[in-house]
Nucleic acid binder design. Structure first.
Lengths: 191, 191
DNA sequence: CCGTGTATAGTCGCTTCCGACTAATAGGGA
DNA sequence: TCCCTATTAGTCGGAAGCGACTATACACGG
C-alpha cells in the first residue's frame, strides 16, 4: 500500500493545482505551462501520468469522474483529498526548511575544469557568461510582464529567486575568467 | 549499439578518474569519496556499476583485466580508451559552455510559498537560513583544510563556486524573510 | 471541400536509477 | 583464539522517468 515516498516535485505542482479545482492530467500540464511554471517543474507526458497515478496510490488525490467528449479518449478528472491537502503543506514546509543535496551538472563540470587547460576553460566560461546574461534578462522581463499585468509579486517569487542566483553564478563566472587570465588562479599540470 | 547518450554526470567523474590510471568500480567510488567529490557527484552502488557498463557499451572505457584475490568476488579493472579521452573533454566543454535547465527542489517549493501563509513561510525560511549558514561554513573550512594541506586551489575550485552560490541563496532568503515581516511582500489570499 | 497543421489527450516499452541484500576478508578487543 | 564489526566488492529486482507513438478534433488556406 504505502509505496515508496514520492520525491518528484512535479507531484507537488499537480497537488497544488488540484487544491484550486479538479482537473484531468492534460489540463494540469497546460495550466502549468500557461503560468510559466514549466521552468520550475519538469513536465514530460510520460512522467505526468505516472505521477498522477502515484499520487492516487498514496491517496493524496482521487478520480472524481471520467468524461468522454465525442470520440476522444476518456479524460479522468482528479481532485485532492483531505490527506492530500495536509501532505502538500507538510511537504512544502519541509522542502523550504531543509536544503537537500542536489548535483547540478555545472558543479560536476567545474570539478574537472583543470582538464580543459586555462585558455579553453576561460573561453568556455565566457560563453557560459553570455548565456547566463540572456537567461537573467529573460527572467527579468518575464517578471516585469507579469507584475505589470497586475499579478501579485508572490505568484512569481520563484523567478526573483532564480534571477538572484543566476546573478551570483554570472558573478563567479566572470571573476574566475579574470583570475584565469591574469594568472591569479594557478594551473597545475602540463598545459 | 550506439545506445542513448549518457547524461549521468557520475560517468564524467568515472571517466576523469580513469584518465589518471586504470581502476575497478569500487576503487573509483572510494577515490571520489576520499577526495570529497561525493558532494559534486551522486554515488550510489547500483548506479555505479550500471554507469560503468554504460561507459563500456559506448566504448569510452574498456575492461583491461579481472583480478581475483583469494575467494573474494572478481574485480574487473577498467581503463579509458582514446575515444573516451576525447569525449571526456568534449562533454566537459559542453557542460561548461551551455547552462541546461535543472529543477531544484527549492525552486519548486518557492513556487508555492504562498500556500504556507506569511508567518509559517518566514519561519521555514529562517530555518533554511540557519542550515545554509552551516553549509557555507562547512564548505569554507573544507576549502581551507585542503588548500592548507598544499593542494592547489584548482583541485577544489568547485567548492569555491558552491560557497559563492550558497551565499547568494542565503542572501535572498534573508532579504525575503525581512520583506515578509515588514509587509513589503504583500500576501494575497486568505491568510 | 480537401488536405495539412496544430491542439487535445493519453499509452507503452525501454532505459536508468536506486537501495536492500549477499558475501568474503581484515582488524581489534575480550 | 574467537567473535564482532568494518571494509571491500558487487548483484539484483523493482520503481521511476522518458519520449516516441497513437488517435481524434478543429481551424483555415487554397
Amino acid at each position: 500500500m504505502a509505496t515508496r515516498k514520492i520525491r518528484n516535485t512535479l507531484a507537488l505542482a499537480l497537488l497544488g493545482l488540484l487544491l484550486e479545482k479538479p482537473m484531468h492530467p492534460y489540463e494540469m500540464a497546460s495550466t502549468l505551462r500557461e503560468r510559466s511554471k514549466d521552468t520550475s517543474f519538469k513536465i514530460t507526458t510520460g512522467t505526468l501520468y505516472d505521477t498522477v497515478e502515484a499520487l492516487a496510490r498514496h491517496g493524496w488525490i482521487e478520480p472524481v469522474e471520467t468524461v468522454r467528449e465525442g470520440n476522444r479518449p476518456e479524460r479522468t478528472v482528479y481532485a485532492h483529498t483531505e490527506l492530500g491537502r495536509e501532505e502538500f503543506v507538510r511537504w512544502l514546509d519541509e522542502l523550504i526548511r531543509e536544503p537537500v543535496a542536489e548535483y547540478p551538472k555545472f558543479v560536476a563540470a567545474v570539478s574537472y575544469l583543470g582538464a580543459l587547460g586555462p585558455e579553453r576553460a576561460a573561453d568556455a566560461l565566457e560563453e557560459r557568461a553570455r548565456h547566463l546574461t540572456e537567461r537573467i534578462d529573460g527572467t527579468d522581463t518575464a517578471l516585469h510582464e507579469t507584475t505589470g499585468a497586475g499579478m501579485p509579486r508572490l505568484f512569481m517569487i520563484e523567478a526573483e529567486y532564480i534571477a538572484h542566483v543566476l546573478r551570483a553564478e554570472l558573478d563567479w563566472t566572470r571573476r574566475t575568467i579574470a583570475e584565469i587570465r591574469d594568472g591569479s588562479l594557478p594551473w597545475p599540470g602540463n598545459h
